[in-house]
Design a protein around this nucleic acid. Structure first.
Lengths: 206, 206
DNA sequence: TAAGAAAACGACATTGTTGTCTGTTTTAGG
DNA sequence: CCTAAAACAGACAACAATGTCGTTTTCTTA
């Protein structure tokens, strides 16, 4: 009476399945992928897949749960400290590590949009969506407020609204990117424009 | 040998079905509604519904096609003339007739998002999405350029990018509204902020 | 190396939806 | 009022995807 396979093996397997799932979701989107797609991509049987995940929803949540993790780990103050300025910290939240506008977009973003929009009438998913929104919005607002206290920002508008504004705009870019493609929307230029608006709206010193 | 029912009757019926469909789509979203839902809501049989629409996609396209119509009908110049200023014309494009920011959102918007995001890998739908995007973006850009020529705007940024920016932001609001609800996102305040940004970015005279 | 426990397999029953098709009803013109 | 043509009804077959379950394989440990 002992575990049949090692814990590491199980985790490996799980990760392998998650990776296959990610590829499939990126390729087909959330609604259009089936468990069979994932099975095939991972080279595993029906039973093998269901051993680890109860259904597509479970699988997808596991996937986007892991990504979320990374962001939470680092505490906010430490992050601001590390970035050197509140402005840089702010840019980091929506531009990523490079802090530079690019034409690149999280390849899983379209599926996430699908997942939350399609599930907007489901209590569970809606709660989840709210959590994510509140988290993103919360981080942004906190950085802005800290920046004000540090004398780095002297905003012309309500920080609360500015924070929400950033989130909504980033979501908008994700949508348009998903629907018509990055080549059609001038993603980079639009992002640069957002930055200019923010610089003015926050009245960034320095 | 003569048409059995009058043309008006057919149109009436069709509209009746479209209206039932609209209600159902608003309630359940695009992906989650079935033809049966529409049949029940319209009080019509399977055969009755398929008489007019080949499938769900056909039905939905008919629905959003009609709405689109209204916007195209009015020529751009006439519209600007009617509004009195390019600024007002611009506001009209994304605020509607009232030209005032509100907490209201097109109730069909979430379904439209679903439809285009989910169908992003389908050639037909993608084309359709591009058309809609190009149209919205085109109208916006034309107004801005006309405004520049009229001396009403002296933009600080590329009009092309500003136009796209507006579209993306409005789409972003639609997403967040769909996902977490209008009460959670301060729709009105966010819209007001957009207007201020635009006023500054376009450098609106007067 | 044998035993036992869990992992992995794959067949299967179930379910929900779709689009078609045949029969019935309705309607307007002759 | 009769008839032809089209509208409408509803049964049905086909299909695709899901989750379960009994069986087989694999691995660990004693």
């Amino acid at each position: 009476m002992s575990p049949k396979v090692s814990q590491e093996h199980k985790e490996q397997r799980r990760n392998q399945l998650l990776q296959a799932a990610e590829e499939v979701f990126i390729e087909h989107g959330y609604e259009n992928t089936t468990m069979k797609h994932v099975m095939n991509k991972a080279g595993v049987s029906r039973g093998g897949l269901y051993q680890y995940f109860d259904n597509k929803e479970d699988l997808f949540e596991a996937l986007i749960g892991e990504q979320q993790q990374e962001i939470i780990d680092e505490s906010l103050k430490a992050m601001i400290e590390k970035q050197g300025s509140h402005w840089d910290a702010l840019l980091l939240t929506f531009l990523g590590e490079s802090k530079k506008p690019t034409d690149h977009m999280d390849p899983l973003a379209p599926s996430k949009l699908e997942y939350f929009i399609t599930g907007r009438n489901d209590t569970r998913r809606r709660e989840h969506a709210k959590e994510r929104y509140d988290h993103a919005y919360g981080v942004t607002e906190k950085i802005i407020i800290a920046g004000i206290e540090a004398g780095e920002f002297a905003p012309r508008f309500d920080p609360d609204v500015i924070a929400r504004y950033i989130i909504s705009y980033v979501d908008g870019l994700a949508v348009d990117h998903a629907i018509v493609g990055s080549e059609s929307i001038k993603l980079k230029e639009q992002t640069e424009l957002l930055i200019e608006y923010l610089r003015w709206g926050l009245n960034v010193k320095e």
